[in-house]
Computed example of a mutant assay.
Amino acid sequence: MAAPAFDRESVPTPIATHDLMGHAAAEQTLLKAATGGRLHHGWMIGGPPGIGKATLAYRFARFLLTGGAERQEDGLFGAPPPPTSLYVSPENPTARRVAAGAHGDLLTIQRTWDEKRKRFKRDLPVEEVRRIAPFLRLTAAEGGWRIVVVDGADQMNPSGQNAILKILEEPPPRALILLVADNPGALLPTIRSRTRTLMLEPLPTTTVRSLVNRMMPDLEMADAAALTTLSDGSIGRGLDLAAAGGLDLYRVLLGVLDTLPRLDLAAAHALADQVARSGQDTVWETTTDLLLWWLARFNRALARGQAAAEIVEGEAALMERLSFAARRDRALDRWMEVWDNVNRLFAKAEGANLDRKQVMLSALRTIEAAAS
């Protein structure tokens, strides 16, 4: 039975999300820095996609813009207790303006929307980055901090990185730059050296499962468990998979792989036709991502000599069958090479606009050759 459709746009964006789960230690690091009186002007918040990095950045921005880090005057009963988290109520007027993107002291820099492909573009344009310097030169509208959140900082080209480096080298007073990056290593070493790095870990399985249940209450228990595993510690990934029909695509994909060591050509062609249809960019990207993810998972299980947990029915038997043959032939290196070759093939297809059906068939044949 197909999983129920999920509307990704029903989920609040990070700037409008007030709850943060799974990153208590990182939150306390920022809280201590903010209330210690010597807050560094640049922070790099890194970690896998979809785990809450941007949510944490905006949570921190809200806290500062509402004066949370300022020492409160003693009242009738003495000084109020210091804050224990970065939480700001959604009802707070400042928080409302932040959520609406209407706070004069907060600038958001992110990738622009591709209306044709219905997704964010891959690169962060240098024109967007160049908005930062004039913004920070202005006096704070409300007498506090001027804050910039760069979401997708690792997608800046060299020109964009050099533009932000100049700001980090000579920051204005009371200015804060929060760089959100999936891959901080893609940024210039000089940028990394001028920021404090805060790396976030993938979310615990229990946290992802709780979020899946909250956001998709209509999912059957088995589907919720499967989606949690496919999320791989990233609720953002899980939501994207749900919106793209990822569970159903994964079942179809595993159905084709289950015919190994000799592929059912009719099933392989049917899958290739399904994912290569014109205008189905999301289906293509989701399926190729799932195939690479499955290959990496199989390689990890093979290297450890331990069976991976079954996500959909029949998967454990497939992995055991392939693992037995691989162990017999001492073929771990060959399977690692399969992942690398398929990864390169999909990357080449994206860059060279190759025929997607033939690319998918070629990837499946590469897997078949290793399994034979």
Rank of each mutant, 00 (worst) to 15 (best):
I164D: 09
V148P: 06
T197N: 07
M156T: 01
T229M: 07
R119G: 02
W145H: 01
E128S: 06
A222R: 14
K121T: 02
P158D: 01
R130N: 01
S234F: 13
T139Q: 09
E128W: 11
P173F: 08
A225D: 14
I132W: 14
R196Y: 14
R130P: 04
L188E: 02
G233W: 10
R119H: 12
D151E: 06
N157M: 00
T206V: 11
S159Q: 03
V150I: 10
L188Y: 07
P158R: 03
L188D: 04
T205V: 10
L178A: 07
P189N: 08
G144V: 03
E128I: 00
L165I: 05
M199E: 09
N162A: 02
I167H: 07
P173I: 00
E169S: 12
S159N: 05
G185C: 06
L165G: 05
R146L: 01
M199D: 05
P184S: 10
V126D: 00
R130T: 01
N162W: 11
P172C: 02
P125A: 01
T207S: 09
A222S: 12
V126I: 01
S231W: 14
A181D: 12
T197L: 07
M216I: 11
A225P: 07
L165Q: 03
F135D: 04
P189R: 10
P184M: 10
A175G: 13
P171N: 08
A181P: 15
Q155E: 03
T195A: 09
E169D: 15
S234Q: 10
G160C: 00
A186F: 11
Q155L: 00
V180K: 11
R137V: 13
A222D: 13
P184E: 09
R194Q: 08
R209Q: 08
T195V: 11
A141L: 05
G152D: 05
R209T: 12
Q161Y: 12
T229V: 13
L230T: 09
A133M: 07
L211S: 05
S159L: 02
P158Q: 02
L124Q: 04
D182P: 15
L188R: 06
L211M: 07
P134I: 08
S210C: 06
P184F: 11
A140L: 02
V149C: 05
A222G: 12
L187N: 06
W145N: 00
R131S: 06
I177A: 04
V180C: 07
R194M: 03
A140P: 11
S231V: 08
A153P: 12
L188S: 06
R122Q: 04
